[in-house]
């Protein structure tokens, strides 16, 4: 069985490919880790806050 690549974010960091975010990422078969990079948890929270702000604008909240 092909070994599945699992990425683990460093302490205080979050992994992302620019679209998905996580602390632990089980890559699908054939996906390489190249497109993933780390951002800080603070940066991640800022992204989540901005997404929520955009959603609130979208939904007229």
């Amino acid at each position: 069985m092909e070994q599945r690549i699992v990425l683990y974010a460093s302490d205080g960091m979050v992994l992302t490919d620019g679209e998905h975010y996580g602390k632990v990422i089980f890559l699908a078969d054939g996906v390489t880790p190249d497109k993933y990079y780390e951002i800080t948890e603070t940066e991640y929270q800022a992204i989540l806050d901005e997404q929520e702000r955009q959603n609130n604008l979208l939904y007229g909240l």
Binding site: R4, H20, F26, A28, D29
Partner: peptide, 13 residues
């Protein structure tokens, strides 16, 4: 369990 769907990227956030 995760390995049963190795065609998916499974992210734990």
């Amino acid at each position: 369990l995760a390995q049963t769907k190795s065609n998916w990227t499974i992210t734990l956030s």
